[in-house]
Structures are given as C-alpha cells and as structure tokens.
Design a protein around this nucleic acid. Structure first.
Ligand SMILES: [Mn+2]
Ligand SMILES: [Mn+2]
Ligand SMILES: [Zn+2]
Ligand SMILES: [Zn+2]
Lengths: 133, 133
DNA sequence: GGCCAATTGAAAAGACTTTTCATTTGGAGC
DNA sequence: GCTCCAAATGAAAAGTCTTTTCAATTGGCC
C-alpha cells in the first residue's frame, strides 16, 4: 500500500505512513480527529491539515473508503477488497469489506428501466458483527 | 404527505408545507440552503433553523431521503418509492427512486458469509440521466 | 551533498450546523 | 369563535468541522 504512493508519484512521508498504519491497524471506521490522535502516537508532529489531505489522497487512490452512517458521513476505513463494499457494525464500528459481485445484475436492470447511464454506486450495510450480537 | 405529519402528531405549519412543496416540485436533490431559498418564495418568513429541523423530521418520517455524493452528504430529495433507493444524475442532480427488490439475496449472502446481522442498507447509484447523456 | 517541487502544519478564515431562548402559533377543547 | 398551552419558530450566538494560506521543511532525483 505504501508502494502505491510512490507508484503514483507521491512522496513517502512519515505523516503518510502514520495515517496508513493507523487505518491498517484498526478494522474500524475512524474520523479525521481519531486518525490524528492515533497517528500522533506513531509520528507525534502529525498535523490535522495533513490528516485531512492524506485521507482524501488515499481515498482517491483507492486505499481507503469513506463510511456513511447515522453518526456522520466523514469516517474512513481501509479498503481491503478492491472495488468492494462494506459492512459496518453499529456497536463496535468494525468494518468488513465484501466483493461487489452480485450487484451488477440489479444495477443493469435499474439502468435499463430508468435510462440512466450508471457510472458508480455506493452500497453500505449496517448491523451487528458476530462479537456484538 | 402533508397528512402524514398530522398522523404522527406533528403540527401542520406553513413552514413545513413550504419545505414539503419545495421537495416535491424538484426532482433533484437539494441542500438545506437551496431548500431555504426556494422555500422563501413560498413562505417568505421561513428560517434556516426550521429548514434543518424540518428536513430531519421528514427524513425520520420517511418522506425524504438523504443523498450522499461526491459534492456532499447533506442533500435531500423526496422519497417517492417507499423503502426504495435512488439514482442520481451527476450533471443535473435529478433523483429517481427505484424499488429495493433484488438486493435481499445479496444481503443475505453477505450476512451469512460474514456473520453480521444486517439491519439496514444504503444503496445509491450515480450516473447520467437520459437527458444529460 | 545540493537542489527544488512537493509536502507540511499553525494559524486564520470559511463553511456549515446546532443550541438558545423569547416569541409566535396550530389545533384541541370548550 | 375564543382560550389556552405545548409545539414550533427564527434571529442570534455558539459550536463544530473543514479548507486556505503561506512560510518552513523535506523526500528523492541528480
Ligand atoms: Mn454520506
Ligand atoms: Mn433496500
Ligand atoms: Zn461489533
Ligand atoms: Zn441529468
């Protein structure tokens, strides 16, 4: 994942590595403020501005996913499944990715019915993880 | 839809009727600020605080849906399809609802695979409407 | 090692949302 | 219709979150 940054021409900085590590170590979704807190334990000079910028960068590169929920729409989790979706535990905030397959049929059917040219989709399931049930 | 307010024990105010009318007249998703602008053409004393409160109320009652997109996550559109999902045009912001059917199979499969007890789901498709293609 | 564009972060600015609280009002009851 | 009061409202203030600015720092190519 760190290699991906270099691949795309971005510098490998301590700040970016710290944010990456934070997102990888937790299986949960985190707000920018939470990423800052945890990131500073890894690299104490980390700043909030950089957290915002880094999270957006990682999202554009596909390493990170945004989680939309009742509590808020600005939380991030590592994207473990390429082009996948995610399932969120409402109790412990754990995030589990799952593959996209099986949705295409529904999307194509809806596209035909409505005449829309569908370019992207967002699917998020919420519930309770095995440990929290 | 206005009847639904009374049914649930809420007062029928000019402000609420104005917000309802705004959401019904546009087929697009609107931010609170846009709802305020348009709502004031119907009821000029409408205030921003009331717009926020009314949009959340209507969402809880199921008359209105939130639209999550690249441009932002706080936009609302009328929920025309009960328990449905929506398709958003990235050009003209038109929103079209479609029924939920066809997704249950995928959800149940994912629930079985992950052990999660799925309680809710969010599905949003984005693309170009027929007129904008 | 030197160089320089990319990156960073503190501070300021900006944007958005919620709370407060005095005033207004819908509608139930008469 | 009129009275009454809890619900609703909105201007202002407060609070929260996010982006911009810009001078200083730094990663990585030479
Ligand atoms: Mn959102
Ligand atoms: Mn559904
Ligand atoms: Zn859990
Ligand atoms: Zn369109």
């Amino acid at each position: 994942m760190a290699k991906g940054l270099r691949t795309h021409g971005y510098k490998l900085t301590a700040q970016r590595l710290a944010v990456l590590q934070v997102l990888r170590e937790g299986n949960e979704h985190l707000t920018p403020a939470e990423v800052l807190d945890r990131g500073r334990k890894i690299y104490s000079r980390l700043g909030m501005t950089t957290v915002y910028r880094t999270l957006e960068l990682l999202r554009k590169l596909g390493f990170v996913r945004r989680v939309h929920g009742a509590e808020g729409c600005r939380a991030y989790a590592e994207a473990r499944e390429r082009d996948g979706h995610h399932l969120v535990c409402q109790a412990c905030r754990r995030v589990v990715d799952f593959p996209c397959s099986g949705l295409n049929e529904l999307i194509e059917h809806t596209a035909r019915r409505t005449g829309f040219a569908v370019e992207s989709h967002l699917l998020e399931l919420a519930g309770l993880c095995p440990a929290c049930q």
